[in-house]
């Protein structure tokens, strides 16, 4: 049922051929279209700027697939509630890199769904305020935390306009080798950096989205799927007034 509806909406929306190119089999498209990610041994360069376009119209009500995928990919599902913790409080303490948000327009009542994660700002306030430089922005646009120099002051969390960051409130017994985490440090979405550094060109959330709401790729490459999509559709930055030049953009909100 929802699939049929979805198809209908897509027919309605997608009038240009370029759009179809983006939506059809995005995994395949992105592999072929986006710039080659630097292999492990090479230094990260600013020739690439990783980014995303999220189409809120395609993001389906009630779907949580990107969130589960990110949890699994980055080991967030391995963070267990400590024994004796209060369930309600723990829900507000457990880490989350991506979340579903449902909006209602105050005038029209229109409902919009969208995923929110670190927006990978070009001028990231979290990096500006971090006293030790643990919060940093890579040349390729990825903003992340160096787990070894983060002192857990949480100033970056105060500064982030998108509430994108999580503090690790408890000991983590089990972790993935590519996503180490430790109690008392801050972390957030790193655009699945371990994938990109291994030559992959997709993120887990994007792969998981059955509705192709997330297009990921190299913003510096005019031919990449994400650049093409940005060129063809109106898109916005959330809190554009702050002039952070985010790497994650949205359309149809």
């Amino acid at each position: 049922m929802s699939k049929v509806k979805h198809q209908g909406r897509r027919e309605f929306l997608k009038t240009s051929a370029a759009a179809a190119a983006v939506t059809v089999a995005p995994g395949v498209m992105l592999h072929t279209l986006s710039a080659e990610a630097a292999p492990r041994t090479e230094a990260v360069t600013d020739k690439v700027r990783w980014g995303m376009l999220i189409d809120a119209n395609k993001c389906a009500d009630g779907c949580n697939d990107c969130v589960s995928a990110c949890d699994k990919e980055n080991g967030l599902d391995l963070v267990d509630m400590p024994e004796g913790a209060d369930q309600g409080l723990w829900e507000r303490q457990r880490p989350r890199w991506i979340r579903q948000v449902k909006l209602k327009d105050n005038l029209s009542g229109k409902i919009t769904n969208l995923p929110m994660m670190c927006q990978h700002c070009e001028m990231p306030p979290c990096v500006d305020v971090c006293p030790t430089g643990a919060s940093f922005r890579r040349a390729d646009g990825i903003v992340m935390v160096d787990r070894h120099t983060c002192i857990g002051c949480r100033y970056c969390m105060m500064a982030c306009p998108y509430k994108a960051r999580s503090f690790i409130h408890a000991e983590v017994a089990e972790k993935l080798t590519h996503a180490p985490r430790g109690k008392g440090c801050v972390e957030s979405c790193n655009l699945c950096v371990h994938r990109l550094d291994n030559g992959d060109t997709t993120t887990a959330c994007q792969d998981a989205c059955k509705h192709q709401a997330i297009v990921f790729g190299d913003l510096s490459d005019p031919e990449s799927a994400v650049s093409q999509a940005l060129k063809n559709y109106p898109s916005v930055q959330i809190r554009a007034d702050l002039k952070l030049n985010t790497g994650v953009r949205y359309s149809n909100i």
Partner: peptide, 22 residues
């Protein structure tokens, strides 16, 4: 109250000069 108070030395040796905190 820091998440990692043991890393105070890091705070004293790694400076981000853009940070008002530093």
């Amino acid at each position: 109250d820091l998440g990692q108070p043991g890393r105070l030395l890091i705070a004293m040796t790694h400076y981000n000069f853009k940070s008002i905190f530093a």
